[in-house]
Computed example of a mutant assay.
Amino acid sequence: MTHPYSNLPAMAFWRAAVAETAAEAVSDIYRPKFPLPADATVATAGSCFAQHVGQALRRAGLDVLDAEPAPFGLAPDIARKHGFDLYSGRYGNIYTARQMVQLLDEIGAGIPDPAHVWTRKNRFHDAFRPGLDPQGLDSIEEVLAIRNRHLARVGAMLRQADVFVFTLGLTEAWRCRDTGRVYPSCPGVIAGEYDPARHEFVNFRYPEVMQDLAEMRARLQDLNPQMRFVLTVSPVPLAATATGGHVLPATQWSKAVLRAAAGDFADAHADVDYFPSYEIVTNPAAHGAFFAQGLRQVTARGVATAMGAFLSAHGLVTKDAPPEDALSDPDDVICEEALLEAFGK
């Protein structure tokens, strides 16, 4: 007897493709929807895991755009703490699709809002990039001037990008009740003051994420009609949840929503691809080896496996690669959300 499962390839069966295959040797997991030429200009943004994506693409020789390079002579570790060399713009971690849509709207308007400047110890912070100047700035005017320059440079950069790689990280966020703007961190964690009359918790559902992805794509293609997109989902678990429940199911719920939305959105658009970095890093065949101690940050081995699969599928190879233990130090990843762990008992 024959049936639809009779002649399927090995990759369709769990035992052959997962249980009996080393996690580093996973193959056929990603078949690109469109090619990524070696001369493509790439822009990256998203949650903490997207920092690894940009690093890997640069090592492969791709032209990863940088709208705001670090000042000459600034030590690399200091530069990263101030938001340089993390993404294609100094926008810090963009954890939600809603946050990205807001940034694009602000680029279109070109007018930063002084209502979203936070204070801490008489210093001033950009509420949408609170961790990028750890010591804060001297005045509200300085924050707004730097943000205005940031918006102009990021807008110019995005107009040049052939491909935009965006990593979805969270569904949970904190929102200003008056303006509807969401922040990358809860007011009061890094700077600012939490006020329940002004701030509210939001956990974006699947329809909202899908709508945000649609608006993100539309706004980016207004800047560059030829732009294509690669979506990924961060495998990094939530550091904490504000849902009132346990962090484990909250993490699984969040990642399920993001994974479903990213996959469905890619299926619906010929110019949007989905790369399964989430599936590669969380593969049971790795037996947890792709997560560092603490079970949140992805190890160098995990990053190398995920990004190796991406580059290999596109016919690209890493040039002058450093040893595996230098590929991706979890402690080098800049992540505001990780600060929440300090409040755990």
Score class of each variant (00 low, 15 high):
Cys48Asp: 14
Val233Phe: 15
Ala173Pro: 03
Asp271Gln: 09
Leu238Asp: 14
Ala239Val: 04
Val303Arg: 04
Ala239Tyr: 07
Ala306Pro: 08
Ala43His: 07
Arg159Ala: 15
Ala19Glu: 12
Phe290Met: 02
Tyr95Arg: 02
Gln102Ile: 05
Ser234Glu: 05
Asp63Lys: 12
Glu142Val: 08
Val230Met: 14
His3Lys: 00
Trp14Ala: 09
Arg198Tyr: 13
Asn224Asp: 09
Ala270Cys: 03
Glu279Ser: 11
Gln293Cys: 01
Met307Cys: 11
Arg120Tyr: 08
Ala266Gly: 03
Phe84Glu: 01
Ala260Ser: 14
Val298Pro: 00
Ala239Thr: 10
Arg205Asn: 15
Ala156Pro: 05
Pro237Phe: 13
Ala79Glu: 13
Glu324Ala: 07
Arg123Asn: 02
Gly54Pro: 09
Ala97Thr: 04
Ala285Gln: 08
Ala17Ile: 00
Ala239Lys: 02
Leu151Arg: 11
Asn203Glu: 15
Ala45Gln: 05
Ile140Trp: 04
Ala17Phe: 05
Ala43Arg: 10
Ala306Leu: 04
Asn93Gln: 09
Asn203Leu: 01
Arg98Met: 06
Arg31Val: 11
Gly180Ile: 08
Arg301Pro: 01
Phe265His: 13
Val333Phe: 15
Pro4Glu: 13
Pro322Ile: 01
Ala321Val: 01
Val333Tyr: 07
Gly288Gln: 04
Met100Asn: 10
Glu142Tyr: 06
Gly89Cys: 07
Gln221Cys: 14
Pro71Lys: 02
Leu220Cys: 14
Gln160Gly: 00
Leu74Glu: 12
Arg296Cys: 01
Ala197Asn: 12
Ile140Pro: 06
Phe128Arg: 02
Asp63His: 07
Tyr5Trp: 10
Glu279Phe: 05
Phe201Gln: 12
Asp212Val: 04
Ala292Asp: 15
Phe204Lys: 06
Glu208Asn: 06
Asp178Met: 12
Gly169His: 00
Lys319Cys: 00
Asp320Cys: 03
Tyr5Phe: 14
Phe275Lys: 07
Leu144Thr: 06
Ala242Lys: 03
Gln99Asp: 09
Leu132Gly: 00
